[in-house]
Design a protein around this nucleic acid. Structure first.
Lengths: 146, 146
DNA sequence: TATCAAGTGAGACTGGGTATCGTCAACAGT
DNA sequence: ACTGTTGACGATACCCAGTCTCACTTGATA
């Protein structure tokens, strides 16, 4: 998932125009590995002297989210971030040290949702699960540092 | 959980001052059953002619959150809301029709977190689970309406 | 290459949340 | 009860994320 063409392909297939700004935003996203905020992309664009308006970045993110090419996650601090991801139901594991994210299926979840529905009488329609922790690399770094 | 004294007690025990504005905010929270936003409380206060500053409401919410008397949840639409709750780990089931919330233990979650940790190599530290659906009352109302 | 709707950018605007700072009042000590 | 300390308050200015508007541009199609 570090190839901007993935998003571009999705765009094309959904019948949206392949404009230069959208390619740029897709590129910026592809160049980021972990999660990122809209502001991150705005900064990236400015640093690289890529002329993309702020509004356009927000619009692109909105569109990509709709197409399931990226997903919104809410960080523990309340910030809204995005992660590039596969367009199937899944969850994110987020490293609280380096911001790297990984997708998981968490296949135990349907059972949990079913139990909760039974216990509360709610008809569960959707859920959101985000896991926070330390990724393997950071664990290694930490233990090396003592 | 419709008694403002719960929050007040928590405040007192933690060594914070029991000021009038804090009582008022606690009261406003107690009078709401489902989730609410900071803006909701600001409106409530104004409607009832209770003189509490906007900043104070935000500060009170922040404090109550720290003391685990209320919890922040992120609605699917990205809004930040709060729910009054017990100060133990749990999750929220939120009715997407009437905003009513219920707490659940979701005791299957530790197993899911463990599995995810094993699968990804992450050392899972915390997780956030929110479930959205239709509460029993709304289900009944809906079927009655046809 | 001409057309025209889809898309863009600048910038105004909105709304949630925070920082500042002078004032006030809850609590502890007398 | 009285008073001093200091945490808390309220008004207001401010900041930042995100949205809206509107005149202009550009990509897909013929």
């Amino acid at each position: 998932m570090t190839d901007p063409s993935t998003i571009v392909t999705v765009l094309d297939r959904a019948g949206f125009r392949l404009t230069e700004p959208r390619r740029v935003v897709a590129g910026l996203i592809a160049d980021r590995n972990g999660h990122f905020t809209a502001a991150d992309l705005v900064d990236d664009a400015r640093e690289r002297r890529l002329d993309v308006g702020r509004a356009t970045i927000f619009r692109a993110l909105e569109l990509f989210t709709e197409l399931n090419a990226v997903e919104r996650v809410d960080l523990p601090n309340g910030e809204h971030a995005y992660v590039e991801c596969e367009p199937v139901h899944h969850h994110h594991v987020i490293c609280s040290q380096c911001a790297r994210t990984t997708e998981v299926e968490a296949c135990g979840m349907p059972a949990v949702a079913r139990d909760v529905g039974k216990a509360t009488g709610f008809k569960i329609q959707s859920h959101r699960l985000e896991l926070f922790g330390i990724c393997p690399d950071c664990q290694a770094t930490n233990s090396r540092r003592g």
